[in-house]
Design a protein around this nucleic acid. Structure first.
Lengths: 129, 129
DNA sequence: TTAGAATATACGTGTAAAGGAATATAAAGA
DNA sequence: TCTTTATATTCCTTTACACGTATATTCTAA
């Protein structure tokens, strides 16, 4: 489980990361919001912490977990080499994500598709009038 | 092997994608440049094609593979939700990637670390004079 | 100091996927 | 047609990892 890419390959881990983007959360809060068994949450948090995606602080019996930026920046840096290539083809993405919506909606319980589409539209160049 | 994230979790596939960013390549060219057995290349290309990362055209007995943009855009869109969060912490990335260099250099045969660092520096804000 | 709450870890199991070796398919050229 | 080149696929084995269940650890509060 060396690389950041293997870490985020796991859907539950991506869900945890998306949850933590709003604010830090305890294990129990993650457990309830994502409806995963507690050992599952703890085990994924362990992996995420070892990989530097999150850090935790102690609050009584609770552990509060929050994001750390470095691995995300590393992923972004890897993606950067492809940006020149794809930036020409923005329109095709709309169709692609619409297809994803149809096929995978049930696997993405937290509306990330909608978020993706919204964000994508923001990066689209304005039509020249 | 549903999601784009699982596809790029495999290091050989990432190497193939990085190779194709310069230009389209035949299976044999990929095989030689990355020093992988031919069946390995073909199998990974199959996965990449099914996931929409690449497409191929026929050239005599050869198959020429090239990148397609959509999956990269989809990954970028997922990463976007974390950008607000990390954009404050740029300096920490330098240290992080320097550590990665020490630990993983032998696993990244194509100088992607150097490329990452270079690109990262480009996105760093200029010091105000 | 003991009970209960919150979290972490250990262990056993199933499964998916990556790799190697062999073989199949397809096209080109003699 | 037969051979050679280029690529794809099949079969088999191994390994890594995600999960469930059970148990351990850690801290609080009574």
């Amino acid at each position: 489980m060396q690389s950041v890419f293997e870490i985020i390959a796991e859907p539950n881990r991506r869900a945890i990361l998306s949850l933590l983007v709003s604010s830090e959360q305890s294990v129990g809060e993650i457990e309830h919001q994502l409806r995963m068994p507690q050992p599952t949450v703890s085990k994924h948090l362990r992996v995420l912490r070892d990989a530097g995606f999150v850090e935790s602080t102690v609050d009584a019996q609770r552990r509060l977990y929050r994001l750390k930026p470095e691995p995300f920046q590393e992923m972004d840096a890897w993606l950067a080499q492809f940006r020149r290539f794809w930036s020409a083809h923005v329109d095709a993405l709309e169709r692609h994500l619409d297809r994803m919506d149809q096929e995978h909606m049930h696997r993405q319980p937290h509306g990330s598709s909608a978020l993706i589409k919204k964000k994508t539209k923001m990066t689209r160049p304005e039509p020249r009038k």
